[in-house]
Design a protein around this nucleic acid. Structure first.
Lengths: 187, 187
DNA sequence: TTATATTCCCTAACAGTGTTAGCAAAGTTA
DNA sequence: TAACTTTGCTAACACTGTTAGGGAATATAA
């Protein structure tokens, strides 16, 4: 039941976007009455929270796979950046709910993203790169945060309405940033 | 009338956030009935659009002032970055509606932000810096976009729920990024 | 001055939202 | 058979954005 609610919700989101998602539509889709939904989820936000968790799991999977394709820190960082970018645009709905874009924000939802999976995965190659470079005193958290912010900013701006045509530019910006980021840590 | 509607709307937003803004509350605040609002604005989005425009005007003013305090491109870029950052956190409500954070997104609203004022202001010092540096073939649009994305990403992430304590870190990241950005263009 | 417009503003409703109280039927246990 | 638990429903509450239609006051025209 829980899963069929989540599946119905997800299908509705894929069809018409987050704005169109409502408890009544979910109820109709699973062919139950509205209060049944509330037997399995405290409220609408709890449903979004669950989908958000799914999103983070999927993103994490993509990042791990991308990382595992390379042995060295440069390759790993680059691959993860592209994987992150790809996830945002291939799984836009997930990215939106994960980062509160394009829908009423859910405070509890946003509390998850605490760097969470992302930081663990990327911190290690960043550390390695810094250690090998000419400025080993560099703060890896600082660099990690820069990396994540840049990625998220680029994606957010690219996702905004009216920016569809700039994807080309943004891809170049991404390339430029990644190479600059990596060479910047080497010193 | 138009202005008093906007003022009432703004006051409501400042009090209880974007989520709490409703046509009925605006009507109550200006002591008129609901349809009067629709004599002056096509719909709720039109009101948000107007407030968004106000936000961009204010931001632009801040950026111009910051820029005018310095003569050289380094100082100008740095000052504008800090002004942008300050605006986002001192005028959070404006920043949120301007960039569709923390509220139902309004597609028409987001179409404004096309870099708009920002690009004009920052492109010139970026060009100057590149021309003076060791890589004059560098694309200034690329750098401008990197700059803006980074700023926006940092701000977005900092604004997310649960990240209040990381402001310190993010300030450091901002400093680190600005200096890296400027020295990166010099070559 | 009277008749016609125009302007201004309201009540009431429509269609939708999240959420919940309370009830009825069905199944389970004693 | 009687009591209890589970399951699901109808109907409502309190909101949301939006609009149709009317009533009263004012301004214009005859």
């Amino acid at each position: 039941m829980r899963t069929s609610i989540l599946e119905a919700a997800w299908q509705l989101v894929m069809q018409d976007g987050w704005q169109a998602l409502s408890i009544r539509k979910i109820a109709e889709a699973i062919e139950y009455s509205v209060p049944v939904i509330y037997d399995h989820f405290a409220n609408k936000e709890a449903i979004l929270l669950e989908l958000t968790k799914q999103g983070f799991q999927k993103l994490n999977k993509e990042l791990v796979e991308a990382k595992n394709e390379f042995a060295g820190p440069e390759g790993q960082i680059e691959a993860m950046a592209y994987a992150y970018w790809r996830f945002a645009f291939e799984q836009t709905a997930y990215y939106q709910v994960m980062y509160g874009l394009g829908m009423p924000s859910c405070e509890t939802v946003n509390q998850i993203n605490e760097l969470s999976t992302f930081s663990e995965l990327i911190l290690q190659p960043v550390r390695e790169l810094i250690a090998r470079g000419n400025h080993p005193e560099t703060d890896p958290f600082l660099k990690l945060h820069t990396f994540w912010s840049m990625l998220h900013g680029l994606i957010s701006i690219n996702m905004m309405a009216g920016n569809e045509k700039k994807e080309e530019l943004n891809q170049k910006v991404l390339q430029d940033f990644i190479s600059g980021f990596i060479s910047g840590m080497k010193g």
